[in-house]
């Protein structure tokens, strides 16, 4: 685990994890939007890498992916974005989240090498379950890039253990059986599931999918090391406005997620 990640989870409980899509609506503006998240109080920044066929995402992030691809965003562009963000935010942990095929097209090891150069702390690939991740895990360990595996409400005890063991940065509990996107109500059993996932020797556990309000951040945050807000931020980016207006909107929304 990188020092930045360790520090983020050690200092603020729960850590606030914010997601923006790299290249949405284009790379320079997405840089400003990620910086706005940081100003609003994000403790860890997730940058999405767009993919043509995002099967784990709901409509909001699908549209963001389409906008990013339309502006010509590639994995290489997202790595460059991460490098720029790293220069401006030396101590904020950065995670890249995307789908496997664009990473394969670059090559697993070249991708991981460029993650190191760019100062990326962790990688999340939702369509790469532990069973299929053998080579990627070995290469990431060698390069020192942290990995995040997902745990779902449907995961069996054996699968939960495998995901916790393989998660070298943090583990990501998917709060809902479904795709990404804001939900007004989250399953009641989420708190109990989260409590069962956090183990003394295990990785930090963040919870995400469906989280969109300060109330949810607070209630879930009592049972997790971090809370991820994604679609609720992305939908504010999709609304009309100038770059400066969008950044202000995102900053104030992220700040509101922390308000008592």
């Amino acid at each position: 685990m990188s020092d930045r990640i360790r520090h983020a989870f050690a200092t603020r409980r729960p850590a606030l994890v914010t997601y923006v899509m790299g290249g949405d609506p284009d790379l320079p503006e997405s840089l400003e939007l990620a910086l706005a998240c940081a100003r609003g109080g994000a403790d860890l920044i997730e940058l999405g890498m767009p993919f043509s066929d995002p099967i784990a995402d709901g409509p909001v992030i699908q549209r963001a992916s389409e906008r990013a691809l339309k502006s010509g965003t590639t994995v290489a562009g997202c790595l460059e974005l991460a490098a720029q963000l790293r220069r401006k935010l030396p101590s904020t942990p950065l995670a890249l989240m995307g789908y496997l095929n664009p990473v394969l097209a670059m090559g697993m090891d070249p991708f991981l090498a460029r993650c190191v150069e760019a100062g990326v702390d962790a990688v999340i690939l939702p369509d790469l379950p532990v069973e299929e991740a053998g080579e990627f895990r070995a290469l990431a360990a060698k390069r020192g890039v942290g990995l995040v595996f997902l745990i779902a409400p449907t995961s069996t005890p054996a699968r939960v253990q495998a995901a916790l063991d393989a998660s070298t940065a943090f583990a990501y509990f998917v709060s809902v059986t479904g795709v990404t996107g804001a939900r007004t109500a989250l399953p009641e059993e989420t708190a109990a599931r989260l409590d069962s996932l956090r183990r003394p020797s295990g990785p930090p556990v963040v919870v995400g999918f469906g989280v969109s309000s300060a109330e949810q951040v607070r209630s879930l945050g009592a049972h997790a090391d971090g809370v991820v807000v994604g679609s609720a931020i992305v939908s504010r980016i999709a609304e009309p406005g100038t770059g400066a207006e969008k950044a202000a909107r995102v900053e104030s929304f992220v700040r509101s997620l922390r308000s008592p």
């Binding site: 099967i55 496997l100 369509d127 997902l150 449907t154 995961s155 069996t156 995901a163 059986t177 479904g178």
Partner: peptide, 15 residues
């Protein structure tokens, strides 16, 4: 081949 799907579906594929 293989099983490159979100974790939510992996238990269903096992079943």
């Amino acid at each position: 081949g293989g099983q490159f799907v979100p974790e939510t579906l992996m238990p269903a594929l096992e079943e």
